[in-house]
């Protein structure tokens, strides 16, 4: 059970985690704005830089997390366990954080925890890995944190994926918060955001 294949996490864990946390917070507060990440940590493949920053800043021993089979290997589970103490949860319905390729958005979103009326905060956070953010297409976002409207186009979201996000926004105050994690930047669509699909 020992973890032997280890690499460092953030080079300055306290400062880097705080910086990274601030970026994630800003992204959540300004839905659809793509935020670049000034901090770097070694990235065990096939995760990407933003996903690693999210994991190292937000996971701890109280947050069971799930990795899609495509992203899962012993090295990553060991790495996250060593640096965050978070337990890997094989059943994504029970996970508080779910990391998966953005192509799986529609299927994964169906079963993630959306919280309860008493505790809406007990919902899951979805971290969808994307190759980047496009200039056109995607969705127009409105709602809290957006002055008029923001357009966001994460590469690789399927039409079914967008439908799943629309359904999610209707559940508010329940629902899942979504982070799109790219190789050098991230953006968020929290549950409070309304979506309209744009023509590509």
């Amino acid at each position: 059970m020992a973890i032997t294949d280890l690499t460092p996490g953030f080079s300055d864990p306290v400062r880097d985690a705080a910086v990274s946390f601030r970026i994630i917070l800003d992204a959540m507060a300004r839905p659809g704005e793509v935020k670049s990440l000034p901090v770097v940590a070694p990235v065990p493949a096939p995760l990407n830089a933003a996903a690693v920053c999210v994991a190292l800043s937000l996971l701890d021993s109280d947050t069971p997390y799930w990795l899609a089979p495509d992203l899962r290997n012993d090295r990553i589970i060991g790495h996250l366990s060593f640096h965050t103490g978070a337990p890997f949860e094989p059943d994504y319905k029970k996970a508080q954080f779910a990391f998966f390729p953005v192509e799986d958005l529609a299927t994964v979103m169906q079963d993630l925890s959306i919280g309860t009326d008493e505790y809406p905060d007990r919902s899951a956070t979805a971290v969808a890995l994307v190759a980047g953010f496009g200039a056109t297409g995607g969705v127009r976002l409105t709602g809290p944190g957006i002055e008029t409207a923001n357009d966001l186009s994460p590469v690789g979201v399927t039409p079914a994926g967008w439908k799943a996000l629309e359904r999610n926004s209707i559940l508010f105050p329940l629902g899942v918060d979504i982070l799109f994690a790219g190789p050098e930047s991230l953006a968020a669509i929290p549950r409070s955001t309304r979506l309209t699909e744009l023509e590509a």
């Binding site: 280890l6 690499t7 460092p8 996490g9 300055d12 864990p13 306290v14 060593f82 640096h83």
Partner: peptide, 8 residues
């Protein structure tokens, strides 16, 4: 040596 995890 290199730190895998600095003293915390």
């Amino acid at each position: 040596f290199a730190f895998l995890r600095k003293p915390e």
